[in-house]
């Protein structure tokens, strides 16, 4: 029977009893209080905003300087461009006259004498469209100029 068998040893608490259960909250060490954090955030944002403003001002100033430099040489470039443009218009007109000289009833700049613009003054220069301007050149030249955005 069980009485004669060696008695089973019951698990008992250790000497002096169990340690108290650690349930107490141990918060992390705080370096800054809430107000200090908010104040620090606002202060840093303000400082960064000021630096951003300084940088913006500098970049804006540089942009204005670049634009100013471009404007200073713009008349020179425009004058040269105008002369070349007018030369090319004359070349185009001469080329068309040469090309169409055997066509009966053809008038330069018109479609068999029917002008494109009817109500404007005859001596008013209306810029031709780009395809018309490049019509006597190889297509490569037109592509090179027309799609300059894609090339560069």
């Amino acid at each position: 029977m069980a009485t004669s068998a060696s008695a089973k040893k019951q698990d008992m608490p250790p000497e002096g009893g169990y340690k108290p259960i650690s349930y107490k909250r141990i918060p992390a060490k705080t370096y800054f209080s809430g107000w200090a954090l908010i104040g620090g955030y606002l202060g840093m944002t303000a400082a960064a905003g000021f630096l951003y403003y300084l940088n913006c001002k500098r970049l804006h100033r540089n942009e204005i300087e670049m634009r100013s430099g471009r404007f200073a040489i713009f008349p020179l470039l425009l004058a040269e461009r105008d002369r070349e443009y007018l030369k090319q218009l004359r070349r185009n007109r001469d080329e068309e006259a040469e090309l169409m000289k055997n066509v009966e009833g053809w008038e330069v700049g018109t479609y068999y004498g029917e002008p494109l613009y009817k109500t404007v003054d005859k001596d008013k220069l209306i810029d031709p469209m780009m395809q018309g301007y490049y019509v006597h050149t190889p297509w490569k030249e037109f592509n090179r100029r027309a799609f300059i955005r894609q090339w560069s």
Binding site: R90, N92, V108, G109, P115, K122, P128
Partner: peptide, 11 residues
């Protein structure tokens, strides 16, 4: 081209 012979172009 729309440039007619009536248009004065400099030489």
């Amino acid at each position: 081209m729309t440039i007619t012979n009536d248009l004065n172009l400099p030489t």
